[in-house]
Amino acid sequence: MANHKSAAKRAKQTIVKTERNRFFKARIKNVTKAVLVAIEANDKETATTAMKEANKYLHHCVSKNILKKATAARKVSRLQVKVNAL
């Protein structure tokens, strides 16, 4: 346990940020999986719609400092290549 006020505050902030990041990262996995499921089903229309949602959300996470810009761009690029291959 923390021995002084600032250490206690940092511990509380870490708990809050960890919970927040867990929510965002779970959502990232969900939107990515939605695109991949649509690709598996060979449904171009659904894949395109899911891709738009994934692109929007991944870049939203960049603005919230959950992901780095290059990481989001890489994930979007890899998904887009798969969607375009349909």
Rank of each mutant, 00 (worst) to 15 (best):
Met1Ile: 08
Phe24Asn: 03
Ala2Ile: 06
Glu45Ile: 11
Ala85Met: 08
Thr71His: 06
Arg20Gly: 02
Thr71Pro: 01
Ala7Asn: 12
Lys69Gln: 14
Ala26Thr: 11
Gln80Thr: 15
Arg78Lys: 14
Leu79Ala: 05
Ile15Met: 04
Asn21Val: 06
Ala72Met: 05
Asn84Ala: 10
Cys61Glu: 07
Ser77Ile: 00
Thr48Val: 09
Lys12Cys: 01
Ala8Gln: 14
Tyr57Ser: 03
Asn55Phe: 05
Asn21Thr: 10
Ala26Leu: 04
Leu79Tyr: 03
Ala73Leu: 04
Ser77Tyr: 06
Gln80Leu: 13
Leu79His: 02
Asn21Leu: 12
Lys9Ala: 12
Cys61Pro: 06
Lys52Ile: 06
Lys17Ala: 14
Lys68Ala: 15
Ala73Thr: 08
Val16Gly: 09
Leu79Val: 08
Ala8Glu: 13
His4Asn: 06
Thr14Glu: 13
Leu67Cys: 01
Lys52Asn: 11
Ala7Leu: 12
Lys75Leu: 12
Leu58Glu: 01
Asn30Cys: 00
His59Pro: 03
Ala70Glu: 12
Arg10Ala: 13
Ala72Glu: 04
Lys68Gly: 15
Tyr57Lys: 02
Asp43Pro: 05
Ile39Pro: 01
Ser63Asn: 12
Ala38Ser: 09
Lys5Asp: 15
Lys75Arg: 14
Ala38Phe: 00
Lys17Glu: 14
His4Gln: 06
Ile28Trp: 03
Ala38Met: 00
Glu53Tyr: 04
Leu86Cys: 10
Arg74Ser: 08
Leu67Tyr: 00
Phe24Lys: 01
Lys82Cys: 05
Leu86Lys: 09
Val37Tyr: 07
Met1Phe: 07
Lys29Met: 11
Glu53Pro: 01
Ser6Arg: 12
Ile39Phe: 04
Lys64Asp: 07
Arg10Thr: 10
His59Asn: 15
Thr48Trp: 02
His4Tyr: 07
Met1Ala: 15
Leu36Met: 15
Lys5Phe: 13
Ile39Tyr: 05
Ala2Arg: 07
Val31Ala: 02
Lys56Trp: 13
Val31Cys: 00
Arg78Trp: 04
Lys52Asp: 11
His60Cys: 02
Ala38Gly: 02
Thr49Pro: 00
Lys29Ser: 14
Leu79Pro: 02
Ala2Val: 02
Ala11Asn: 08
Lys56Glu: 13
Val62Asn: 06
Glu45Trp: 02
Ile15Gly: 02
Lys25Thr: 07
Glu53Phe: 03
Ile28Phe: 07
Val35Ile: 08
Asp43Phe: 08
His60Lys: 13
Met1Glu: 11
Glu45Pro: 00
Arg22Gly: 06
Lys68Met: 15
Lys82Arg: 13
Ala7Gly: 03
Lys25Glu: 12
Ile39Gln: 04
Ala11Val: 09
Met1Arg: 04
Ala70Asn: 09
Lys69Val: 09
Arg74Thr: 05
Ile28Arg: 03
